[in-house]
Amino acid sequence: MTMKVRDAIPTPDNSTNFSIASDSKTVVGSTLDNLKAAIAGETGASAKYTAFAKAAKEQGYDQIARLFEATAAAEQIHIGLEYGLVSQIDPDYEKPSADAPAAEASDLNLISGACGEIYETSDMYPAFIKKAQEEGETKAVQVFTRAKLAESVHAERYLDAYNNLDAADDDTFYLCPICGYIHKGEDFEKCPICFAPKDKFTAF
């Protein structure tokens, strides 16, 4: 499945998939607090996916290893966007580090990844977006929105890989350097989230 390109860049104002999970697990603070919490979460995710990529390679799943590598890099893009806003307000803020969890079999790692991405896209980021809107933090709204939309695609990529674990293809993954969206295969012209052109993407 591929995310469709709309006539306008998706935002919370022109989209209806920004609802917050009714049993939300997210602790919401100020937008600055939320940016720092997002950085911590993305840092953990990037470390986890890097470990999962190594395990997939060792287990003979080259394409899944490339998917995890692309997603780890996508989370670094989100970290960079969020850190850019935090550092403007809190110049002394230092990025956190994270220890990678022990990797398991690749099918379980894919489910772990999908669950984390679904939480971020359906709970954490919608909650942070709502708070940023309330505080008039338009730059944070944009950063959180791009991450939220990319995370849902990451979850979709993981579930597709899980469902086709024993029927893999050789498709390349393409990472948008602006928002962290990941496309599978050659059939696209631009990012459906931020409209960056295909020639700006990084291949994995």
Rank of each mutant, 00 (worst) to 15 (best):
M3I: 08
K4A: 13
S15R: 09
N17P: 04
F18K: 07
A21L: 12
A21S: 14
A21D: 15
S22E: 14
D23T: 10
D23A: 12
S24N: 04
S24F: 08
G29T: 09
G29R: 10
G29F: 08
G29W: 04
N34C: 08
L35S: 07
A37M: 05
I39N: 03
G41N: 12
G44R: 04
K48G: 10
Y49H: 08
F52R: 01
A53H: 00
A53P: 00
E58H: 04
Y61D: 06
Y61A: 08
T71Y: 00
G80V: 08
Y83C: 04
G84K: 05
I89Y: 03
D90R: 05
D92H: 10
Y93H: 05
E94Y: 03
K95W: 01
K95V: 13
S97T: 15
A98M: 11
A100P: 11
A103T: 06
D107I: 06
L110C: 02
G113H: 04
I118A: 13
T121W: 14
K131A: 11
K131E: 12
Q133W: 02
A140R: 07
R146I: 02
S152Q: 07
V153Y: 01
E156A: 15
E156K: 13
R157E: 10
Y158G: 01
L159P: 03
L165C: 02
A167N: 14
A167Y: 11
A168Y: 02
D169I: 01
C176K: 07
C176P: 07
P177C: 12
G180Q: 05
K184V: 06
G185C: 02
E186N: 13
F188I: 04
C191W: 11
F195P: 00
K200L: 14
